[in-house]
């Protein structure tokens, strides 16, 4: 069981690494999803450790929020791609036109 605690820490830090390191916006969103996965896993572990179901409900809410985040994020990326024809962060330097 304890191996999962390390796993969730590992997932979070790997997601952090990817979020900083990756160049395109889609991969950054992917890595954010990985971080959320690690955190959700930790919540389920807490539920298991304390015996309360509340922690599992937090996972439920995390899922809702991550679904919203991905939907809005991806649609913004697509409309950005339509306008600027790129999704790389270092090419998207201008905030307004």
């Amino acid at each position: 069981m304890s191996i999962y605690y390390y796993l969730s820490a590992f997932l979070f830090c790997l997601g952090l690494l990817g979020t900083i390191y990756k160049k395109d916006l889609i991969s950054i969103l992917l890595c954010l999803e990985l971080m959320l996965g690690g955190v959700a896993l930790l919540f389920v572990l807490f539920s298991r450790a304390t015996g309360f179901l509340d922690a599992q409900l937090q996972v439920f809410f995390i899922m809702i929020i991550s679904a919203c985040e991905v939907a809005i994020g991806l649609s913004m990326i697509i409309s950005l791609y339509r306008k600027k024809n790129t999704v790389y962060t270092d090419e998207l330097k201008i905030i307004s036109e």
Binding site: E33, V87, D90
Partner: peptide, 22 residues
């Protein structure tokens, strides 16, 4: 649902065609 959205968008925006070499 979430992962399928990612796959979907990646197939629409083909990043292999526009690589970023900076």
């Amino acid at each position: 649902a979430v992962a399928i959205l990612f796959v979907f968008v990646m197939m629409l925006i083909d990043l292999e065609k526009y690589p970023n070499n900076t």
